[in-house]
Amino acid sequence: MAKIIVEVMLKPEILDPQGQAVASALPRLGFTFAKSVRQGKRFEIEVTGDPTPAQLAEVEKAAETLLSNPVIETYVVKIEK
């Protein structure tokens, strides 16, 4: 069944202490690949049946008001099969 996915990330210019902490922990554990890390969050929303355009519009609205803080974050809504 398809899921609606909302991915929320801090805007690129906003400080991300969590991402920074991960980035500085990686080399301590021997991982040397990362130049920088930014951390976000992901919502998986199940609806009955395949998502309709109306539902997607609703999710879009929820993403803007509840799931993300538009002052400092951006979001992407997509469908995952």
Partner: peptide, 15 residues
Amino acid sequence: KPTKRPAVQVGDPFA
């Protein structure tokens, strides 16, 4: 470049 420079500052208390 990042589209809009924010007026918002984000703090990191542990730092």
